[in-house]
Design a protein around this nucleic acid. Structure first.
Length: 426
RNA sequence: GGAGAGGUGGCUGAGUGGCCGAAAGCGGCGGUCUUGAAAACCGUUGAAGGUUUAUCCCUUCCAAGAGUUCGAAUCUCUUCCUCUCCGCCA
């Protein structure tokens, strides 16, 4: 949610900023709605004030034992007037809220113009692209070779876009997860956090998935308002919903490993093969809750923390700054980390690190108390994948394959694999 | 799952229709005293919004939502949550 004060003080710049997102904001109808809001709110509050004063005088008269009937006659009709005004006000406020929550965050000044991923800007590259003197296999074929990755059996158990992992591949996924968690807690000083995998609608509203993106979510059943989490961002960020965080506890740095569930109706047709786009996948998520003055710096740091994982795994990657059209609804600025996949001969997204500034915090009512003013201020929220575990598994299988079909185990993971140096396919 | 008791400010806790945004205590902040600190004493201390923007003033908020009433923290209904006992269970 954007700051309503900004709309009142500088509507023109809001219009200009939203234009960068390709949104033609109708300032005229907003202004007329806002004027109605103002006049109806003032009128409602005046009526409430009158009711309060008259009720008080009735109480005082009664206490003195006076006849209150004349006073009661005077307030006749006031209740209905008030009710009508309150109803009108809440309907205007509802309209206003619907308008506001449909608007995306304002983009950071250095987000490049553009419509889609074609216009994203590469910031840096890391690592040497591996050269193979044999025909490389993709992760689906590699997984099939040692029967560690089974899409057919998952389709039987559930449906398409699920996977079953077995044996050393399943263990490798667990090793990747453990390595990421240990690095983020021990080296990057995040606090390990365990959260529910099912959240309520209020939480999804707080981080911005609802009301706009309900189609991407798995709802538990028709009668409840509970959903499977699409990312750990939702439960972890909602820890601070309706809270005023102590200054001494800032910044909050949390890391959580969870499965993620995405329905993504309409996403079929792309990445149908393999592990890249699944309804259920594992992810290690980094979340920071920071002061407004520190968020840009924290965003850079968090992105570096995700990069460190790729570097320790010696996986070549590049860092891109998303353009206006590709930046998510709630984000002001997003870096994607894209890992090299030899079979596709391309970089594919493996992490997305975003600074939401106060956009989520305003919805969440997440604040901290500034000791300088003594007043609560909205926090800034930042999160990023550190990393998507399934896609990391894909990247390791493909980048560490050998001609014989063995998969070498990256150095940093060997301890988590019982000292194993490679996975044999036979 | 069954039975019962509850949800009040940062915390503990009083308040069963009007003088209650809410006693008291703790904590926090400011001050007096002290070389300094502690203790003691005095004062102060919720959030959101409207209007003004220098104050003032006004509205809303006692788990959430609806209702009764001139008037609701207080009465009624619904939902959520917590605790105790029983049952079941990793």
């Amino acid at each position: 949610m954007l700051d309503p004060q900004l709309f009142r003080s500088d509507l023109e710049s809001v219009q200009v900023e939203l234009k960068r997102r390709g949104i033609d904001f109708d300032a005229k109808s907003y202004t007329s709605l806002e004027e109605r809001r103002k006049s109806v709110q003032v009128k409602t509050q005046e009526l409430q004030n009158e009711r309060n004063l008259r009720s008080k005088s009735i109480g005082q008269a009664k206490a003195k034992g006076e006849d209150v009937q004349p006073l009661l006659d005077q307030v006749q009709g006031l209740g209905e007037q008030l009710k009508a005004a309150e109803t009108e006000l809440s309907s205007i406020q509802g309209e206003m809220k619907a308008l506001m929550e449909g608007l995306p965050n304002i983009l950071d000044a250095d987000v490049p113009a553009g419509n889609d991923e074609e216009d994203n800007v590469e910031i840096s590259r890391w690592g040497d692209i591996p050269q193979f003197d044999f025909a490389v296999k993709d992760h689906v074929d590699l997984g099939a070779l040692n029967q560690g990755m089974d899409f057919e059996v998952a389709a039987k158990i559930t449906s398409a876009r699920f996977v079953a992992l077995k044996g050393s591949i399943a263990r490798l996924q667990r090793a990747i997860t453990q390595f990421m968690l240990d690095t983020h807690t021990d080296v990057h000083e995040y606090s390990e956090t365990y959260v529910p995998y099912i959240v309520n609608a209020d939480s999804l509203y707080g981080t911005g998935q609802l009301p706009k993106f309900a189609d991407d979510l798995f709802k538990i059943n028709a009668n409840s308002d509970l959903y499977l989490i699409p990312t750990a961002e939702v439960p972890v960020t909602n820890i601070v919903r309706n809270e005023i965080v102590d200054a001494k506890d800032m910044p909050l740095k949390m890391v959580a490993h969870t499965p993620c569930f995405r329905s993504e109706a309409g996403a079929y047709g792309r990445d149908v093969r393999g592990l890249i786009r699944q309804h259920q996948f594992e992810k290690v998520e980094l979340v920071q809750i920071v002061k407004a003055t520190e968020s840009e710096q924290a965003h850079e740091a968090l992105t570096q923390h995700a990069e460190n994982i790729l570097q320790k795994l010696k996986l070549p990657y590049r860092k891109v700054l998303l353009c206006a059209g590709d930046t998510g609804f709630s984000s002001t600025k997003t870096y994607d980390l894209e890992v090299w996949l030899p079979a596709q001969e391309t970089y594919r997204e493996i992490s997305s690190c975003s600074n939401f500034k106060d956009f989520q915090a305003r919805r969440l009512k997440a604040r901290w108390r500034n000791p300088e003013t003594g007043k609560p201020e909205l926090v800034h929220t930042i999160n990023g994948s550190g990393l998507a575990v399934g896609r990391t598994l894909v990247a390791i299988l493909e980048n560490y394959q050998t001609e014989s079909g063995d998969i070498k185990i990256p150095d940093v993971l060997q301890a988590y694999m019982g000292g194993l140096e490679k996975i044999s396919i036979v």
